[in-house]
Design a protein around this nucleic acid. Structure first.
Lengths: 206, 206
DNA sequence: CAGTAATCAGTGGCTAGGCCACCTGACAAC
DNA sequence: GTTGTCAGGTGGCCTAGCCACTGATTACTG
């Protein structure tokens, strides 16, 4: 079962791409400079000039660092160093999510959302009213969902939602979605668990 | 210390980058085309043209997929689909389940079951009939659920169900459960996804 | 004819320069 | 003090192109 290569055969020698070496180099730079969470890296143009590479390549290096969680790149702001993750129990599992087709993740998250909605509908009624009563503004997915999440509390479903959300983002702000969100909020307010769960089905387009 | 955002505050709404959407899109494409390990993706230039993006952006999307292990990009050759990892993903996460209150796990599995039931109800109708038609014997949870799982196919939800099942076993064989199972089978047979999902709510006593 | 070297077409890697969307902070107007 | 405006700096994305690498084909050599 071992992949022992013949001693006579030379290794293929996978060349490292420039942007990968760059990423490692920048990571070392962060370390050397003693940068901590929240600190900003120099702008791409400057960094590229100093390192003698094109901005495109440098940008890819930063993207690579971002994927690995070392930095966070914000449009119009810059590249911010990220505090190393507390590394909870989910990382291995979460890493596998990236390899799955998005449709699968969407379906899974829909199921989780439905479960959370159902739990939220069973929460204390005064809390529900305070959090979900309409205030005249159109609902957005993120806002509505934050309320539902708070009502549902922490738990396994909440953690699953966090993990899945990374790879199955919420829907856009369309009329159909707002209608669904209204129906969802309404069901949770009434304490109608079944209706709340049903409303979530297909919400993400899975 | 809590990062709890005020409910009054609007969502920060993190925009997704084009190359990230592209990566997800291509991942779905791989799935849709039924590509397996070793298969080659179309060349960058062609893909970029077909998708209406620049080659640079497409290349970044591919790099992202490579970082996540979905494909392997070789200079002078092309982008090759990678066989999914042996997936040591779930065990770490699974180990943590034992430490959680059972009620939490039950609620989570109910949500997963509902999602699976919904998926099963959308499966090919002839398969549904063959598998779920009544045969005179009283239904048991295990048998019914095996059928639903087969109809729903493999996927993220199925894996979650496997993991959760260890710590949240099915209900006993009572009259109430049999009634539910009949309703579930009936809904799946009719292809009524919403009803199938609703039937699962509370099935485990969560 | 067999084996080797040169060639070539197709692929990704990287560069250069530019435009646009976005965020922030300063400053004017109220 | 509060609000609205605006300019400067930032990353996102594009066009256009050259270069390096790979694999198969072709030409050459013994």
């Amino acid at each position: 079962m071992s992949e022992e290569p013949s001693p006579r055969r030379l290794t293929p020698l996978r060349r490292e791409r420039l942007y990968e070496s760059l990423a490692a180099h920048i990571s070392d730079f962060i370390e050397a400079q003693g940068l901590v969470g929240g600190d900003r890296l120099p702008p791409e143009r400057q960094l590229a000039a100093e390192l003698g590479v094109s901005r495109a390549t440098l940008s890819r290096a930063l993207a690579s660092l971002e994927t690995r969680g070392r930095i966070e790149v914000r449009h119009g702001v810059g590249a911010l160093v990220r505090e190393p993750q507390p590394a909870g129990g989910v990382p291995t599992w979460e890493a596998g999510l990236a390899q799955r087709p998005r449709s699968e993740v969407l379906v899974a998250r829909e199921a989780v959302l439905a479960g959370l909605a159902r739990t939220a509908a069973g929460a204390d009624s005064s809390l529900r009213v305070a959090m979900l009563a309409p205030d005249g503004r159109p609902r957005t997915f993120d806002h509505t969902w934050r309320c539902v999440r708070r009502l549902a509390g922490d738990g396994l479903l909440a953690e699953l939602d966090d993990a899945l959300a990374e790879h199955a983002p919420g829907p856009g702000d369309t009329a159909g979605v707002r209608e669904r969100l209204d129906a969802l909020a309404d069901a949770v307010l009434r304490g109608d668990a079944a209706a709340a769960a049903t409303t979530c089905q297909g919400m993400l387009g899975g």
